[in-house]
Amino acid sequence: MRIAIHGRNFPESARPYIQSMFEELAKRQAEVVISEGYRDFLDKAGVAHYSEATYSTTEGVANADFIFSLGGDGTLLDAVTHVGPRLIPIIGINIGRLGFLATVAPPSIRLMIDALFTGQFSIDERSLVSVRSNQDIFGNLPFGLNDFTITRTQTSSMITVHTYLDGEFLNSYWADGVIISTPSGSTGYSLSCGGPVLLPQTNNFIITPISPHNLNVRPMIVMDSCQLAFEVESRSGNFLAALDSRSFTVETSVRISVQKETFPARLVKLSDDNFLNTLRSKLNWGWDIRN
Rank of each mutant, 00 (worst) to 15 (best):
T163L: 07
V232F: 05
Q259I: 01
E59D: 14
S186W: 14
V83N: 06
L276S: 09
N214S: 01
V129I: 15
V129L: 12
D78H: 13
D124V: 02
F275I: 02
A105S: 13
T118Q: 09
S35E: 15
T155W: 11
S133I: 06
A241P: 10
L141N: 15
R255N: 02
M220I: 10
A45E: 15
V222F: 00
A53Q: 13
S35W: 12
T75S: 04
E12T: 14
I159K: 11
K282S: 02
M223Q: 03
F22N: 04
L276P: 02
R39E: 10
S157W: 07
R280P: 00
L116T: 05
D65L: 07
F41P: 00
P196E: 15
T163Q: 08
L98P: 00
D65H: 15
Q154S: 14
P16M: 07
P183D: 13
L283W: 00
S122I: 08
D224W: 00
K260V: 03
I113V: 11
G188L: 06
V250F: 05
F248K: 11
P212Y: 05
T153Q: 09
N238L: 03
V32N: 02
L198H: 09
A229S: 14
L77R: 00
G144M: 06
E12K: 15
G71C: 06
R132K: 15
E168T: 11
A53H: 12
V222C: 00
F100T: 06
L283K: 00
E125D: 15
I159H: 10
I109V: 14
M220V: 10
R246N: 10
S157L: 12
Q227L: 02
F66H: 07
A64T: 00
I95D: 01
V47F: 12
D166V: 01
G92W: 07
L42Q: 12
Y17V: 04
A102M: 12
D288L: 07
M1T: 09
A4N: 06
F239I: 03
E231K: 12
P142H: 14
N63M: 12
Q201P: 01
R246F: 08
A79R: 07
G119A: 11
E231L: 06
S211Y: 10
T149N: 08
S157H: 13
I67P: 04
Y17P: 04
E52R: 04
V217N: 05
K269I: 01
Q19A: 14
P196W: 13
T160K: 11
Y38L: 11
W174E: 12
G46N: 13
E233G: 06
V178Y: 01
G7M: 03
A229V: 01
A53L: 09
Y38P: 07
V33F: 04
S211R: 10
A4E: 06
G194Y: 03
I206K: 05
Q29G: 06
I3G: 01
H82R: 02
S271G: 01
Y50A: 05
H82M: 03
M158D: 05
V83S: 06
F121D: 06
S181M: 04
A79N: 08
A62N: 08
E52W: 01
L25E: 00
A105Y: 09
